[in-house]
Measured scan of single mutants.
Amino acid sequence: DEDELTGILKKLSLEKYQPIFEEQEVDMEAFLTLTDGDLKELGIKTDGSRQQILAAISELNAG
């Protein structure tokens, strides 16, 4: 699971946030449920980064 998540972050060039997800024990299943508020709480402060992550999440959820 973590590897898939790392792959997604790398694709977005946001792998610098990978340790945050690891630290908070966010797995792929949890990742797919994250909201903008969750990402802010995790410490992802950049709007653009959150938008990219949320776009990836909705794409993955759309299947």
Results as ranks from 00 to 15, higher is better:
36 D>A: 08
3 D>F: 15
59 E>Y: 14
7 G>M: 15
62 A>F: 06
24 Q>D: 05
50 R>H: 03
9 L>T: 00
52 Q>H: 09
12 L>K: 07
40 K>N: 09
12 L>H: 15
31 F>P: 04
5 L>R: 01
7 G>S: 15
43 G>Q: 02
30 A>E: 11
28 M>I: 08
20 I>G: 04
43 G>H: 03
14 L>I: 06
13 S>W: 04
56 A>W: 01
51 Q>I: 05
18 Q>E: 10
38 D>A: 04
48 G>A: 12
16 K>T: 09
60 L>M: 12
54 L>W: 01
31 F>I: 06
24 Q>H: 07
38 D>Q: 09
50 R>S: 03
44 I>E: 02
5 L>G: 00
20 I>F: 05
7 G>L: 15
29 E>A: 13
50 R>M: 01
36 D>M: 04
57 I>C: 07
9 L>N: 00
12 L>D: 00
4 E>S: 09
59 E>G: 11
57 I>W: 01
56 A>F: 07
29 E>H: 05
41 E>Q: 14
60 L>V: 13
35 T>Y: 01
50 R>E: 03
22 E>C: 06
1 D>G: 13
44 I>K: 05
29 E>W: 01
21 F>Q: 01
16 K>S: 11
14 L>T: 00
56 A>M: 08
33 T>G: 12
60 L>Q: 10
37 G>K: 14
16 K>H: 14
21 F>R: 02
30 A>Y: 08
56 A>T: 10
13 S>E: 13
19 P>Y: 07
21 F>G: 03
60 L>E: 10
12 L>W: 12
55 A>M: 08
48 G>I: 09
23 E>R: 12
57 I>L: 07
2 E>D: 10
2 E>Q: 15
58 S>A: 14
45 K>A: 12
15 E>C: 06
29 E>T: 10
48 G>M: 10
55 A>R: 15
43 G>L: 02
27 D>E: 06
23 E>D: 09
41 E>N: 12
20 I>H: 08
43 G>M: 02
39 L>C: 02
18 Q>H: 08
49 S>P: 08
35 T>R: 12
4 E>H: 06
43 G>F: 03
19 P>G: 10
1 D>L: 15
38 D>R: 11
62 A>H: 11
35 T>K: 12
8 I>F: 10
40 K>Q: 09
5 L>S: 00
39 L>H: 01
62 A>I: 06
8 I>T: 12
24 Q>A: 13
1 D>M: 15
14 L>K: 00
23 E>H: 04
4 E>F: 12
3 D>S: 14
9 L>H: 00
8 I>S: 07
23 E>Y: 03
11 K>G: 08
25 E>I: 07
47 D>C: 10
28 M>Y: 10
27 D>H: 07
57 I>S: 07
27 D>Q: 04
26 V>Y: 06
53 I>R: 03
23 E>W: 00
22 E>S: 12
63 G>N: 07
47 D>G: 09
18 Q>K: 14
29 E>M: 06
34 L>I: 02
10 K>D: 02
13 S>V: 03
44 I>F: 09
7 G>N: 11
4 E>I: 15
5 L>F: 11
34 L>K: 06
63 G>V: 10
35 T>P: 01
15 E>I: 06
41 E>P: 02
10 K>R: 06
59 E>P: 02
37 G>Y: 10
59 E>I: 03
10 K>I: 01
31 F>V: 06
37 G>F: 12
49 S>K: 09
13 S>P: 01
54 L>V: 07
21 F>W: 00
16 K>Q: 07
31 F>H: 02
37 G>E: 13
22 E>H: 05
14 L>Y: 00
1 D>S: 14
26 V>A: 03
18 Q>Y: 03
15 E>Q: 13
30 A>T: 10
49 S>T: 12
19 P>H: 14
22 E>I: 00
48 G>L: 12
62 A>G: 14
38 D>I: 00
3 D>V: 07
48 G>H: 08
60 L>H: 12
62 A>P: 06
1 D>K: 15
24 Q>Y: 10
61 N>D: 06
27 D>M: 01
17 Y>R: 01
24 Q>N: 14
57 I>R: 07
58 S>D: 14
19 P>T: 10
18 Q>G: 11
15 E>S: 09
7 G>E: 13
39 L>I: 04
15 E>M: 10
59 E>Q: 11
40 K>A: 10
10 K>P: 03
39 L>S: 01
50 R>C: 05
8 I>P: 00
11 K>T: 04
23 E>Q: 09
33 T>I: 03
25 E>M: 13
7 G>Y: 12
58 S>I: 03
32 L>T: 09
5 L>D: 00
22 E>K: 11
30 A>W: 04
45 K>E: 14
49 S>C: 15
26 V>Q: 02
30 A>I: 09
23 E>G: 08
54 L>G: 04
53 I>T: 06
3 D>M: 15
47 D>L: 11
53 I>F: 04
57 I>Q: 10
23 E>L: 05
20 I>C: 14
10 K>Q: 07
33 T>H: 13
6 T>P: 08
29 E>D: 10
13 S>Q: 14
44 I>G: 02
25 E>D: 09
48 G>V: 13
3 D>A: 09
45 K>G: 10
7 G>Q: 15
54 L>A: 05
61 N>W: 03
61 N>P: 04
48 G>F: 06
4 E>Y: 03
2 E>K: 13
61 N>Q: 10
54 L>T: 06
28 M>A: 12
30 A>L: 11
34 L>G: 03
52 Q>G: 07
53 I>W: 00
55 A>W: 05
22 E>F: 05
60 L>T: 08
47 D>V: 12
48 G>D: 13
22 E>M: 11
23 E>C: 05
37 G>H: 11
14 L>E: 01
36 D>P: 04
51 Q>D: 11
21 F>I: 02
57 I>A: 07
13 S>R: 13
44 I>N: 02
44 I>C: 04
20 I>P: 02
19 P>F: 07
5 L>Q: 02
4 E>M: 07
4 E>C: 13
40 K>M: 08
58 S>K: 15
33 T>P: 01
55 A>N: 14
45 K>Y: 07
40 K>S: 11
46 T>R: 07
7 G>C: 11
26 V>T: 04
50 R>P: 02
40 K>F: 06
18 Q>F: 05
52 Q>W: 01
26 V>W: 05
62 A>N: 12
57 I>M: 03
56 A>E: 13
3 D>E: 11
22 E>R: 08
29 E>P: 11
19 P>Q: 08
46 T>C: 14
38 D>T: 05
51 Q>Y: 04
15 E>N: 04
54 L>N: 08
47 D>P: 13
63 G>F: 03
